[in-house]
Design a protein around this nucleic acid. Structure first.
Length: 245
RNA sequence: GCUAUUUCGAU
């Protein structure tokens, strides 16, 4: 089963759902019983494909085989509902999950928080962050990045900075997603000096800038006519072996 | 040993 699951997962990740389902058929023919992971993988595949209908149908197939959905199943479904903007359904699903006695984890919360942020419901997103912590689930870097990215995008950088502090107090290390959000937002607000200071502090905070962060920073500097700074950053990246476009 | 979450569009 494990081997078949891996093959199915590869097809799913390559968005070859036909092949993935074919493989499920092959298993049946050879008398190999699929397990919960097999179905979760297929469900995640349909979700990646944005096919809510097929994903939901697959949950029924999961039941037909005598399995019960788990936190993976629910998280996949909740995430796809969020992505297709059916946030109400996503929350219904979340409640259903709890009724089933399945404990949501950080990943489950992250999908909901992220989609609340995207749909402009930051207040609700922050409330959910608090609820999550009350329920004893530790937020992770994804949780904070979703919120920080949102605050940075709407240029509420002070709010984002407050979140950064709580993140640090929880021993969570900001990553390139975090830094890029701040740097891009600071540049867009004309706060280039702060952007540069933050960029330069990355290494000492044990976060190696990646191509995305560097490219977008250099780009912002060039577009605002700050050629010297741009060259400076560009050279630093080159020194570190970061490949820029 | 197998499954789920973060960059809407910078380059």
């Amino acid at each position: 089963v494990f081997s078949y699951n891996m093959v199915i997962d590869c097809f799913c990740k390559a968005k070859m759902m036909g092949k993935a389902m074919e493989t499920l058929g092959v298993m049946a023919k050879r008398g190999i019983f699929p397990n919960l992971v097999t179905f979760n993988t297929l469900i995640a595949g349909y979700c990646k494909d944005r096919n809510v209908i097929k994903a939901r149908a697959m949950v029924l197939v999961l039941f037909d085989h005598g399995f019960k959905p788990d936190v993976f199943t629910f998280s996949s479904i909740i995430d796809i509902l969020c992505r297709v903007n059916q946030i109400t359904d996503a929350f219904d699903c979340f409640l259903e999950m709890v009724e089933w006695g399945i404990k949501p984890n950080a990943i489950t919360y992250n999908s909901l928080i992220r989609s609340l942020c995207i749909s402009g419901n930051v207040i609700k997103a922050m409330k959910l962050l608090r609820k999550m912590q009350v329920d004893g689930i530790r937020p992770d870097v994804y949780t904070f990045n979703a919120l920080i990215q949102n605050y940075c995008k709407v240029k509420k950088i002070d709010k984002a900075q407050r979140l950064l502090s709580s993140m640090l107090s929880l021993d969570l290390r900001p990553d390139n997603f975090t830094y890029a959000a701040f740097i891009n937002s600071l540049c867009e607000s004309g706060r280039f000096v702060e952007a540069k200071d933050l960029f330069n502090s990355m290494e000492e905070n044990r976060c190696r800038p990646d191509a995305y962060t560097c490219n977008s920073f250099v780009d912002a500097l060039v577009n605002s006519g700050r050629f010297e700074d741009a060259q400076d950053v560009w050279l630093k990246c080159k020194e570190k072996g970061i490949v820029l476009k």
